[in-house]
Design a protein around this nucleic acid. Structure first.
Length: 108
DNA sequence: ACACTGACCACTG
DNA sequence: CCAGTGGCCAGTG
C-alpha cells in the first residue's frame, strides 16, 4: 500500500480516548496541509478495512453522526458510542463540546 | 485529460 | 438559522 495517508488518519483515530470524539477537520489540521477534511472523510471510507479503527468516534464539526450510514446497521455508530458512555440523541453527540478531543491540542 | 463525486469546513450575507 | 460559495485532494468512468 502506498497510501500512508490512511495510516496517518487511522493512527490519530486510534488515539482518541474511549468516551471521547473528534471531527474530520480536527484530524486534517493535525496531519497538516497535506490533508483536508474531505480527505479524512474519504480515508474513513477505507477504514472499513481496519476494524481496529474506532470510526464511530469521528463525527462532523457539529457532532453529527454523518458516517452512520457507512456502518453495518443504521444504529451501529450510535450504539457503539453509547456503549462507551457517549450519549447520542437524534444522530447528534450530546455535550459534544465537552467530549470533543482535539489531536492538535491533546497530542501537541 | 475532463467531469463528477465525496463519512467536510470556513466564510459571507 | 439558512443558503450559497470556494477550497481541499484523490478516486473513478
Amino acid at each position: 500500500m502506498k497510501n500512508n495517508f490512511f495510516e496517518d488518519v487511522y493512527e490519530v483515530v486510534c488515539l482518541i480516548p474511549k468516551g471521547r470524539v473528534t471531527s474530520y477537520g480536527a484530524i486534517a489540521k493535525y496531519l497538516g496541509s497535506k490533508m483536508s477534511a474531505r480527505m479524512v472523510g474519504w480515508a474513513m471510507n477505507a477504514a472499513h478495512t481496519r476494524p481496529e479503527v474506532p470510526a464511530h468516534r469521528v463525527v462532523n464539526r457539529s457532532g453529527l453522526l454523518t458516517g452512520k450510514h457507512h456502518f453495518g446497521t443504521p444504529t451501529a455508530m450510535q450504539e457503539a458510542l453509547q456503549a462507551e458512555g457517549v450519549q447520542v440523541v437524534d444522530d447528534r453527540v450530546v455535550n459534544f463540546k465537552e467530549l470533543f478531543w482535539d489531536p492538535q491540542q491533546e497530542l501537541g
